[in-house]
């Protein structure tokens, strides 16, 4: 089956629909027009650019270009994790912990999936490596930022409880136990929900895309299962590391709660 290419002018038809929605929003004073148009424009520009980059990357397939692309994706994700936390650790800690956790978990799992499970030749073949890493990073980023946001916010609110537990001789890990569990749950929930609803409520985007591109559904389903499993694993380990390192940093070497290490506000 041949894939039907989309002519640019046909995308214009879809864009006209967005303009119609924007006009409706403007006339009805719904206050979404501006954000809608800016976001639509960003999608257009960002995806057109990444299309060019991927074309070039696929053509060259040199390892260092792929590594550079992966590094840029990681750093942007790291910045996003910081921006999504209402309260975050002061200085470089917020960025380092979020980025470190994402790096260890998503890169390890992606490389494992590439070398052991899928096995393209070479293992870093960009057609496989970049989309896989992108999906891993995107989901790990959500999990890590939700977990860290919950951790910091709960610690801030429950200062008195944590200190009272410390006063009774508990270790910092014991005093943080409930909060750590909550933070993990909120980081893992999107992946767990996505797995539970997959195929029944929603047809996952990657599988849909592959079917549109002409893959037999049986193959697309196998890739989708692989991706959902490794996404969950990557998100889970990422959240575990972020919560462990972030929690440790909230206490000093005398196991005192150090809320002065948190700052609040938007980036």
């Amino acid at each position: 089956m041949e894939v039907i290419d989309l002519a640019w002018w046909k995308l214009g038809l879809a864009a006209l629909l967005v303009l119609a929605l924007a006009a409706t929003g403007y006339l009805a004073r719904l206050g979404i027009t501006r954000n809608l148009l800016i976001a639509a424009l960003r999608t257009l520009i960002q995806l057109a650019l990444i299309g060019l980059v991927l074309e070039a990357l696929f053509a060259s397939a040199a390892f260092y270009w792929i590594a550079l692309m992966a590094l840029i994706m990681l750093l942007v994700a790291g910045r996003e994790v910081v921006a999504r936390q209402g309260r975050r650790l002061r200085g470089w800690w917020a960025f380092s912990i979020g980025t470190g956790a994402m790096f260890v978990s998503s890169f390890t799992v992606t490389i494992l999936a590439l070398t052991v499970v899928i096995g393209p030749e070479p293992w870093y073949a960009p057609q496989y490596a970049i989309p896989l890493l992108g999906m891993m990073l995107g989901n790990t980023m959500t999990g890590v930022s939700l977990a860290l946001d919950r951790l910091n916010e709960s610690v801030w609110r429950q200062r008195a409880v944590i200190e009272n537990r410390l006063m009774l001789g508990q270790t910092w890990q014991q005093a943080l136990e409930d909060i750590r569990r909550d933070a993990m749950r909120s980081g893992m929930m999107p992946s767990i929900n996505a797995m539970a609803a997959a195929g029944i409520v929603s047809l996952p985007g990657m599988m849909t895309g592959q079917i549109l591109a002409g893959s037999p559904p049986a193959v697309a389903v196998k890739y989708q299962i692989l991706v959902m499993l490794i996404i969950t694993v990557g998100t889970g380990f990422g959240a575990v590391m972020a919560v462990t390192w972030g929690g440790r940093r909230l206490f000093d070497d005398r196991e005192r709660l150090r809320l002065d290490r948190l700052v609040s506000g938007v980036l």
Partner: peptide, 22 residues
């Protein structure tokens, strides 16, 4: 400072004015 902080606090226990229950 010679013993871990949680050990110290289990021997020297503080009861705050406003006790917490979790």
């Amino acid at each position: 400072q010679d013993i871990p902080a949680h050990q110290w606090r289990s021997r020297v226990v503080m009861v705050p004015a406003d006790s917490q229950w979790w």
